[in-house]
Design a protein around this nucleic acid. Sequence first.
DNA 1: ATAATAATTTAGACTAACCTAAATAATTGT
DNA 2: ACAATTATTTAGGTTAGTCTAAATTATTAT
Lengths: 219, 219
Amino acid sequence: MTRSEENYLKAIYHLGDNQNRPVATNAIAEQMETKPSSVTDMIKKLSEKKLVNYRKYQGVTLSEHGRHAALGIIRKHRLWEVFLVDKLHFSWDEVHEMAEQLEHIKSDKLIDRLDEHLGFPKYDPHGDPIPSREGKVNKTDKRLLTEVPLNTSGICVGVKDSSVAFLKFLDKNKIALGDTITVIDREEFDGSLYIEIDQIKIHISNQIASNLYIQVKDL
Amino acid sequence: MTRSEENYLKAIYHLGDNQNRPVATNAIAEQMETKPSSVTDMIKKLSEKKLVNYRKYQGVTLSEHGRHAALGIIRKHRLWEVFLVDKLHFSWDEVHEMAEQLEHIKSDKLIDRLDEHLGFPKYDPHGDPIPSREGKVNKTDKRLLTEVPLNTSGICVGVKDSSVAFLKFLDKNKIALGDTITVIDREEFDGSLYIEIDQIKIHISNQIASNLYIQVKDL
DNA sequence: ATAATAATTTAGACTAACCTAAATAATTGT
DNA sequence: ACAATTATTTAGGTTAGTCTAAATTATTAT
């Protein structure tokens, strides 16, 4: 499989919302920063290889085979991200580009050894689950702080807005990846939140809260 | 720079014997498992980019710029090899293919962090020197046991014949990568050698000795 | 229901990296 | 020295992945 084919499969997987909903040509084109006509070409190729199901004008879905392939790439991407953060001490917001390249390295043995070396992690640094070698993905409950009921707690696993300004704000307020956050109360007036981090209560605006992801613990 | 361009530069560097001797089109074609006409095409392209010096029918040499680029790739290749052997516990004879892929990952920051993570190694698992970020390469004295004067000692860094049979033989005789080997005496009759490994003297045939590389310590 | 708009596909073209076959230059043997 | 051989280059073609422009199908709004 070529690098480009792998990238298309990955895009289709993500756009299908990790489900298998049909994905539009234009959506793929936008995600991949390419033109719709190029997408059509590639879809035809993937369809001939039985990696996707395709009917003209109806969008695409991944075949079982294609889904498995997509999960393989995602597994590699996320394991490499763990490596970059845990072993090479990059921060979570600078690893994506590197992982985009590393995910295409072809060697099952390498990825298995890497998995072992990292201690078989279940989640990547952004809180997204790492698919198993067999293509199983843990469900995860990663949600914006604003979307969660009162008294919910979870681990801070990501940001929606990854601008430097926002990341600096978090730093200043001692909010970091991996912190356990509990939502104490919500201010009706402006939607701001009272939250607790490491036994310290702070008050954050709705704007901030709506850009912070926590992963709610699995039941 | 494309992956293919990088591979050509690397091939030219190696074929120029790490010196800057002109390299023949056919030699490159053989090394890269491609046709001479394809090589000519690529050489023209590299020449336009000022990465090589080229005059028709006269072979190519690397320009200063091209040499620097080639050393960059080799640096990455060898650092990844160290990673695979030291951290993921691969053996020295199974890392080459993976490193061939990893060497094309584009990120200076990544390679610097990797270097640091590995403790700034000076040699790869085969005893070849790792070029510095600035493109300096340590000279190294990697030689076959049969080519070395009596009483020379060095570290076992590689094999010429990497067949399974030979590797098994080494295992059985407790000869491993990293061992310090001293050549004690040479049998005139059959060219066999008496050598010392970890204070133990053993006797090996010329056939064995002529497939074992040691790296003589730099003066 | 149908005209206007949006999404998708088709047609034809381009580039990088390869190929084969033919032409040309360099080298070698006598 | 020059014929034969070998090395190299040129000419023209192929494939993967992209593009633009035009044609076609689907959706939306009145």
